[in-house]
Amino acid sequence: MTRIFHYTLAAIVFCGLIAGAYVVLPTSFGKAPSKTEEEHDEHGEQAAVMSEAKLTAAGIELEKAGPATLKQTIRLNGMLQANQEFVVQVTPRFPGIVREVHKHVGDNVQKNDLLAKIESNQSLTTYELRAPLAGTVIERHATLGEYASEQKPIFVVADLSTVWADFSIPRRELRRVKVGDTIIVDPEDGNEPVTSKVTYLSPVGTSDTQSGLARAVVSNTDSRLRPGLFVAGRLVLEQTPAAIAIRVGALQSMEGRNVVFVRNGEKFEPREVELGQRDSERAEVLFGLEEGDVYAAKNSFVIKAEIAKASAAHEH
């Protein structure tokens, strides 16, 4: 009986040692990193430090996320021309010889400014031609000593403070366009587009191109818009408000996710975003950003490249 007791006691002790070893073994490999630490390490790798000087050198522009109006548009091609309601052809009253020329193409004139003097063939007296309105001389067909006929204008004066932007509307889109629609006119000169309204729709089409004409009267007080040049247009069909929107150029793809680089001090961190509607300029953000967040709106690919370089260096 005593021998059996000793065998039983030895077995219990042995099993206890085995169990003790099982409990102690995992601790001998060191403490496993917590989930919070893993997220922190990954977050640290996916950030780029960009000073103000570096932002300027890279051409990175910053904006704040906030409300915007998204515009559903169709793109159009057009051409600028002088507003024909303010273009005057100046024709001699009597035929004669041009004795003086006072204005040239490109000159700005005020109403009643002297343009030229002509010696009448009938009376042999000299009379004056004066500007009928304030504007710019856009054509001149008078040369000193030349014969001037009352059948042909020798000056054309135009008030270019407004111009016509004529757009070609494809046949399939004509039913969607109406007078009063907003149209965004882009001279494609590197400056901001100009917003105007459709003021005229031609009742007839063009057989060669199977298209119609839509016209907008555009303000040109800064003389930026030059008749004869092509322009691009975006006709606004629908406008939708968005609580938070960002520039489309801010969006980048990382690991299959849409991200925006949000500024935190001198760091830019990728923020995954869920997108809603968008137009050619802005995208609605449904989740991932808050109003007022400062983000890289232009040349954000530079930040993506910086993060990729830092990540590669970390792996090596």
Results as ranks from 00 to 15, higher is better:
residue 132 P to K: 02
residue 146 E to M: 13
residue 124 L to I: 13
residue 117 K to T: 06
residue 118 I to Q: 02
residue 125 T to E: 14
residue 120 S to C: 10
residue 132 P to V: 04
residue 144 L to W: 07
residue 142 A to D: 09
residue 137 V to G: 00
residue 125 T to Y: 11
residue 146 E to H: 13
residue 145 G to D: 07
residue 115 L to G: 01
residue 122 Q to R: 12
residue 127 Y to R: 09
residue 143 T to S: 12
residue 120 S to G: 03
residue 124 L to P: 02
residue 134 A to H: 00
residue 140 R to H: 05
residue 146 E to F: 08
residue 130 R to V: 14
residue 113 D to P: 00
residue 128 E to A: 15
residue 142 A to G: 09
residue 117 K to D: 12
residue 139 E to H: 02
residue 135 G to V: 01
residue 137 V to D: 00
residue 127 Y to I: 09
residue 131 A to K: 04
residue 132 P to N: 06
residue 136 T to K: 15
residue 137 V to P: 00
residue 122 Q to F: 15
residue 136 T to F: 06
residue 140 R to I: 01
residue 124 L to R: 14
residue 114 L to A: 12
residue 113 D to T: 01
residue 146 E to C: 11
residue 133 L to H: 11
residue 136 T to S: 10
residue 118 I to P: 03
residue 120 S to P: 06
residue 127 Y to E: 06
residue 121 N to K: 12
residue 129 L to I: 09
residue 129 L to D: 03
residue 137 V to Q: 00
residue 126 T to H: 04
residue 128 E to P: 07
residue 114 L to C: 08
residue 131 A to Y: 01
residue 142 A to M: 10
residue 127 Y to H: 08
residue 133 L to D: 03
residue 116 A to D: 07
residue 146 E to R: 07
residue 113 D to I: 00
residue 144 L to Y: 08
residue 144 L to E: 06
residue 127 Y to F: 15
residue 124 L to M: 15
residue 147 Y to H: 12
residue 147 Y to S: 13
residue 126 T to I: 14
residue 142 A to K: 07
residue 132 P to C: 03
residue 144 L to A: 12
residue 113 D to V: 00
residue 120 S to N: 08
residue 131 A to C: 06
residue 143 T to D: 14
residue 126 T to G: 04
residue 134 A to T: 14
residue 119 E to A: 05
residue 147 Y to F: 15
residue 127 Y to A: 08
residue 113 D to H: 01
residue 132 P to R: 04
residue 140 R to Q: 08
residue 124 L to N: 15
residue 125 T to K: 13
residue 145 G to F: 09
residue 132 P to S: 07
residue 125 T to W: 12
residue 129 L to M: 15
residue 126 T to L: 07
residue 116 A to H: 10
residue 117 K to N: 12
residue 130 R to F: 02
residue 142 A to V: 05
residue 141 H to I: 01
residue 139 E to W: 00
residue 146 E to K: 10
residue 129 L to E: 07
residue 118 I to V: 14
residue 115 L to W: 02
residue 132 P to T: 08
residue 135 G to F: 05
residue 135 G to N: 01
residue 140 R to N: 10
residue 113 D to K: 02
residue 114 L to K: 12
residue 126 T to F: 08
residue 145 G to K: 11
residue 130 R to G: 01
residue 139 E to Y: 01
residue 140 R to M: 08
residue 141 H to E: 14
residue 123 S to W: 10
residue 114 L to G: 10
residue 134 A to C: 07
residue 123 S to M: 09
residue 135 G to K: 03
residue 119 E to I: 06
residue 143 T to L: 15
residue 141 H to M: 11
residue 139 E to D: 10
residue 143 T to Y: 11
residue 130 R to T: 13
residue 126 T to W: 07
residue 126 T to E: 15
residue 145 G to H: 09
residue 132 P to D: 05
residue 143 T to I: 14
residue 142 A to W: 00
residue 129 L to R: 04
residue 117 K to E: 15
residue 145 G to L: 07
residue 116 A to I: 11
residue 122 Q to G: 14
residue 122 Q to M: 14
residue 117 K to Y: 05
residue 118 I to T: 02
residue 136 T to R: 13
residue 135 G to P: 04
residue 127 Y to L: 09
residue 137 V to W: 01
residue 120 S to Q: 11
residue 129 L to V: 10
residue 136 T to H: 04
residue 117 K to S: 14
residue 117 K to V: 09
residue 144 L to S: 09
residue 129 L to K: 10
residue 113 D to S: 02
residue 121 N to A: 10
